[in-house]
Design a protein around this nucleic acid. Structure first.
Length: 803
RNA sequence: GCACCUGUGGCGGAAUUGGCAGACGCGCUAGACUUAGGAUCUAGUGUCCCCGACGUGAAGGUUCAAGUCCUUUCAGGUGCACCA
C-alpha cells in the first residue's frame, strides 16, 4: 500500500474527469433530468473565500449522488462578472475592467477546479460576454415593450462614494451596501422596472415552492403587503385629501391629519397656508436630510402645522388640524395619514410633543394619555358612534363598508415593495439598448442590433455631476432613431449587477444558442431548477429579482414554468477561528489555496461538510480540519486489512445496511455532518474488527465519493472497480437488514432509569412489561410499593409508576 | 421597536414522532511503539459529596416521561426598520 498522496491523486482524477467529459450534462438524454444550481460567483480580486465551497460542496454532493442514481445532471458554473469592485479597481489603476475580469476569472477557475467540483465546464457563462449580455438586453427590451420599464425623475438613493443610484435593497442602515458611504436623496431621471406589478404573485406563488421557511418569511416581509382602506378627508380649501389606514375602525379617534412634506397638495395650497414660509423652511430641511439622518432622528418627531387649513373627519364632521411631518413617507400609501394618537405609538409621540388631543376609541388599554394602546385582538370600540361595542376585528370591515357605501373611502391593499431602480451611472454594466429621439421619445434599438456592446472609453470614472462614463463616448452616443431615422442619442446609463444574474440559470440550459436565450426544447427539458442553494443575503435582492424576471418571461411565453427554482436552501457563514466574521482587517482569513496545498481538496471538502449544521454559522478550526484529514487517512489505511471477500461479512451486514440508509438520507436532508459521522463510525467498526471485506470497502468508498471524490476514485480503481466511481450506481440497502434482532430496553421507575435489558426486537407492550417486572433489580426496588401504572413503549422502554 | 433564528461538556456539534442527553470529531489524560514526536495505535474523558445524585441560558408549567411542548424571562445573531 502506498502512502496517501493527495497531490498526485487529485491531479490525476481531475484530469481524467475533464478528459472524459464525465460531468457533461446532455440535452438529449433518456434519463430523468436533475438541475442543481449554486449562485455563480462574482470573480473578485481577492480570490475564493472558504465560504464559497461550503454551498458548492453541498450541492456537488447532491449532483454526484444524483448521477449515481441514474439522473442526467446539470450542475453548471459561470461568472457574475459585471460590478463595482472591478470597476473601482479599473479606475484606480486605469486598466480596462475586461482585463481585470479575465484575470480574476482565471484565478477563480483554477481554484474551483482544484476543489474537484463536478461542474459542467462546457456550459460556463460570463455575464460580461457580449454573447451573453445580448440576451440580458433582449429581456430588457421585452420588459420595455410590455410597459414594465419606464423612465422617471424621482428621488433616488445616491451613494456618495460609488457616485451611483442604488435600489432600496442596496441601502443598508442608510449607507451603501457595497462601500459603506452615506447615501443621500437626489432627484434623477432613472430607468425603473415595475416589480410592484408582480408583488401579489411574488407572495402567492411562494406556496408552490419548497424554500426554507425563513426565506419565504423574509420575502413576504420585504414585499410587505398590508390590507386597509383609503379614506377621503375634505379640506377647508375644497380639496380632497386621501389617507391610507389599516385601522379604519379608529376613524372616530383621528384628531389631526399629517401629510409628508413632499405631498403635492402642500405646494398646491401655498396661497391658503398663512405660515407658508415656515412650511417651506421645513420642506427644505427635510429634503436636505439623507435617508440615514431621517431614520437616525426617528425618535424625535418634527413637523409644522398648516395654518389656515383644516380637514373634516368624514366619520363625525370634526374639524381637524393639518400638519406636515417627515415621519410620513411620500413613497408609501398616499403620502398622508389620519393620526390616531390613542392607538398608534408614532401618532401618540407626535401628539404629545405638539399638544394635540388624544381620544380613546378602543377600550382595554391603560390610560391613553400615558401610552398608546395598539392591540387589535383585545378591546372594544368606544366613543365611535355606530361602532361602539364591537371588537376591533369586526369594526375594521364595518367601518370600511360604511365608508364605501357613503363614497368616502374604499378598501385598498398596499405593498412596501418599491419599483426597482434599474439605471447605474457606471461603465462596467450592460448598456441599456434604447435611444432618445427628440421626435419619438425613447425608442428601443432593433433586436437584430443586439448585443449593443460597450464602447471603448479613456476613463472609467463617473462624472462629478453623476453622469455615466459612457456620456463621453461621443461617437457611440450619437446615432439615428430606429423609428423616424432622425438624430438620436443612446442611453448612457448601464444596468445594475442584478440584471445578468436574474436569468443566468436559463442560459446554462443551452449556453451556445445564437437564436434565443435558450431553445424551447432545452427550456422545457431542464426547467425548473430542482435545487438552488445560495446566501441568505440574496433573499430580497437576487432571489426576488430573478423570480420577477422569470414570471415576466413566463407571461410572454418564453419559459415554461411560473417559478424558476423548486427548492431553495441557504448555508451558514464560515467564521474566523475566533468566531468573528472573516475579514482582512481582523486577520482571520483562511485561504483555500493553503488548505488544499497542505491537506488536499478531499480533506477540505470533508471538513467543510463536517464543520457543523449546514444552515448555521460556524467558526473555522484548523484542528477540526486535521481531524478530517486523519479520517481520510484512516479510510486509506484500511487497505491493509481488506480481504478478497466480495460480500458483506455476517457480523457487519446490519452496520452496512444501516450506514447506507443513514448516509443517503442525511445527504438529502443536508445533514452532511452526521452523514460523515456515520461513515467514521463504520470505519471505527472495521478497525476494531481488524478486517474488512472488499465488498464492504467498496460500499464505504462509494458512500464517501460525493464528499471526497478523488481519493475514492483512486481506491475504486485500485480494487478493480468498473469505470469511474463517479458514474457508478449508488449502493442499495435492504430495510429489513437495518433492523436489529435484539435491542436494549430501558426500565425506568418513575421516569428514572433503574435497569437495562436486551430483548428480542418486536416484542409488544405486554411482553415487555412482563419481562421488566421479572428483573431482580426492579423486583427489589418495587417491593412493598404500590404499582400505579406500567407504560411500555415497544423498542424503547418500560416505565413503572409507583407510589 | 417588529419579525425570524440560536443558546447542550474545555471546543465544533449529535439526539424522526416527547422515550437511555452528550453520537462523531477536536482537545485533554494515561499507556504502547519510537533516537525523537506536534506521527501512529490502545484505553479513558459531562459535573459532584462517585454502589448515589445532579445536569441541555434562567424561572415556572403540562406529562408516567421534556433538550424537544406551553408561559414568562435573559443572552447572542440575522433581517426589516416612522410602511400608517
Amino acid at each position: 500500500m502506498e502512502q496517501y498522496n493527495f497531490k498526485t491523486i487529485e491531479k490525476k482524477w481531475q484530469d481524467r474527469w475533464e478528459a472524459e467529459g464525465a460531468f457533461h450534462a446532455l440535452n438529449d438524454s433518456d434519463k430523468p433530468k436533475y438541475y442543481a444550481l449554486i449562485e455563480f460567483p462574482y470573480p473578485s480580486g481577492m480570490g475564493l473565500h472558504v465560504g464559497h465551497p461550503r454551498g458548492y460542496t453541498a450541492l456537488d454532493i447532491i449532483a454526484r449522488k444524483r448521477r449515481m442514481e441514474g439522473y442526467n445532471v446539470l450542475y453548471p458554473i459561470g461568472w457574475d462578472a459585471f460590478g463595482l469592485p472591478t470597476e473601482n479597481y479599473a479606475i484606480k489603476n486605469n486598466i480596462h475592467p475586461k482585463i481585470i475580469t479575465e484575470k480574476n476569472i482565471a484565478n477563480f477557475t483554477r481554484q474551483l477546479k482544484m476543489l474537484g467540483f463536478s461542474f459542467d465546464w462546457s456550459r460556463e457563462v460570463n455575464t460580461t460576454d457580449p454573447e451573453y449580455y445580448k440576451w440580458t438586453q433582449w429581456i430588457f427590451l421585452q420588459l420595455f415593450k410590455h410597459g414594465l420599464a419606464y423612465k422617471q425623475e424621482m428621488p433616488i438613493n445616491w451613494c456618495t462614494g460609488c457616485k451611483v443610484g442604488l435600489a432600496n435593497e442596496e441601502v443598508v442602515n442608510g449607507v451603501c451596501e457595497r462601500c459603506g458611504s452615506p447615501v443621500e436623496q437626489r432627484r434623477k431621471s432613472q430607468w425603473m422596472l415595475k416589480i410592484t406589478e408582480y408583488a401579489q404573485r411574488l407572495i402567492d406563488d411562494l406556496d408552490d415552492v419548497d424554500y426554507l421557511e425563513k426565506i419565504k418569511i423574509q420575502q413576504k416581509n420585504w414585499i410587505g403587503r398590508s390590507e386597509g382602506a383609503e379614506v377621503k378627508f375634505m379640506l377647508s380649501s375644497g380639496d380632497e385629501l386621501i389617507v391610507y389606514t389599516t385601522r379604519a375602525d379608529t376613524l372616530f379617534g383621528a384628531t389631526y391629519v399629517v401629510m409628508s412634506p413632499e405631498h403635492p397638495l402642500v405646494e398646491k395650497l401655498k396661497d391658503q397656508i398663512t405660515n407658508y414660509d415656515k412650511v417651506e423652511e421645513y420642506k427644505a430641511a427635510a429634503a436636505r436630510k439623507s435617508e440615514f439622518e431621517r431614520t437616525e432622528l426617528a425618535k424625535d418627531k418634527t413637523g409644522v402645522a398648516l395654518e389656515g387649513i383644516y380637514a373634516v373627519n368624514p366619520a363625525n364632521g370634526d374639524k381637524l388640524p393639518v400638519w406636515i411631518s417627515d415621519y410620513v413617507l411620500v413613497t408609501y400609501g398616499t403620502g398622508a395619514i389620519m393620526a390616531v394618537p390613542a392607538h398608534d405609538s408614532r401618532d401618540w409621540e407626535f401628539a404629545k410633543k405638539f399638544g394635540l388631543p388624544i381620544i380613546e376609541v378602543v377600550s382595554g388599554g391603560k390610560n391613553v394619555q400615558e401610552e398608546a394602546y395598539t392591540d387589535v385582538y383585545k378591546g372594544n370600540l368606544v366613543n365611535s358612534g355606530f361602532l361602539n361595542g364591537m371588537p376591533v376585528k369586526e369594526a375594521i370591515p364595518a367601518m370600511i363598508n360604511w365608508l364605501e357605501e357613503k363614497g368616502l373611502g374604499k378598501r385598498k391593499v398596499n405593498f412596501k415593495l418599491r419599483d426597482w431602480v434599474f439605471s447605474r451611472q457606471r461603465y462596467w454594466g450592460e448598456p441599456i439598448p434604447l435611444v432618445y429621439c427628440e421626435k419619438c421619445g425613447w425608442v428601443p434599438i432593433d433586436e437584430s442590433e443586439l448585443p449593443l456592446t460597450l464602447p471603448e472609453v479613456e476613463h472609467f470614472e463617473p462624472g462629478e455631476n453623476g453622469e455615466s462614463p459612457l456620456a463621453k463616448a461621443y461617437d457611440w452616443i450619437n446615432t439615428t432613431c430606429p423609428h423616424c431615422g432622425g438624430p438620436a442619442k443612446r442611453e448612457t446609463d448601464t444596468m445594475p449587477q442584478w440584471a445578468g444574474s436574474s436569468w443566468y440559470f436559463l442560459r446554462y440550459m443551452d449556453p451556445h444558442n445564437k437564436e434565443a436565450l435558450a431553445s424551447k426544447e432545452a427550456l422545457e427539458y431542464w426547467s425548473p431548477v430542482d435545487w438552488y442553494n445560495g446566501g441568505m443575503e440574496h433573499t430580497t435582492l437576487h432571489l426576488l429579482y430573478s423570480r420577477f424576471w422569470h414570471k415576466f418571461l413566463y407571461d410572454i411565453g418564453v419559459v415554461p414554468t411560473k417559478e424558476p427554482y423548486m427548492k431553495r436552501t441557504s448555508h451558514g457563514m464560515i467564521l474566523g477561528e475566533n468566531g468573528e466574521k472573516m475579514s482582512k482587517s481582523r486577520g482571520n482569513v483562511v485561504n483555500p489555496d493553503e488548505v488544499v496545498n497542505e491537506f488536499g481538496a478531499d480533506a477540505f471538502r470533508t471538513y467543510e461538510m463536517f464543520i457543523g449544521a449546514f444552515d448555521q454559522a460556524t467558526p473555522w478550526s484548523q484542528q477540526g480540519l486535521k481531524g478530517c484529514y486523519k479520517f481520510l487517512e484512516r479510510v486509506w489505511s484500511l487497505q491493509a486489512i481488506v480481504t478478497d471477500e466480495e460480500d458483506y461479512s455476517s457480523d457487519l451486514e446490519k452496520s452496512m445496511h444501516k450506514t447506507i440508509k443513514k448516509v443517503g438520507e442525511d445527504y438529502e436532508r443536508m445533514k452532511y455532518n452526521t452523514a460523515i459521522a456515520a461513515m467514521m463510525s463504520l470505519v471505527n467498526e472495521f478497525t476494531k474488527k481488524g478486517s474488512v471485506t472488499k465488498g464492504e470497502y467498496m460500499t464505504l468508498i462509494t458512500l464517501l465519493n460525493p464528499v471526497a471524490p478523488h481519493m475514492t476514485e483512486e481506491l475504486w480503481e485500485t480494487y478493480g472497480g468498473e469505470g469511474l466511481l463517479s458514474l457508478h450506481a449508488w449502493p442499495e440497502f435492504d430495510e429489513a437488514k437495518t433492523i436489529d434482532d435484539e435491542i436494549e430496553i430501558v426500565v425506568q421507575i418513575n421516569g428514572k432509569i433503574r435497569d437495562k435489558m436486551t430483548v428480542p426486537a418486536g416484542l409488544d407492550r405486554d411482553s415487555l412489561s412482563g419481562i421488566a417486572m421479572e428483573s431482580e433489580k426492579i423486583k427489589s426496588l418495587t417491593e412493598g410499593k404500590n404499582i400505579v401504572k406500567v407504560i411500555a413503549v415497544p423498542g424503547k422502554l418500560v416505565n413503572i409508576v409507583v407510589k
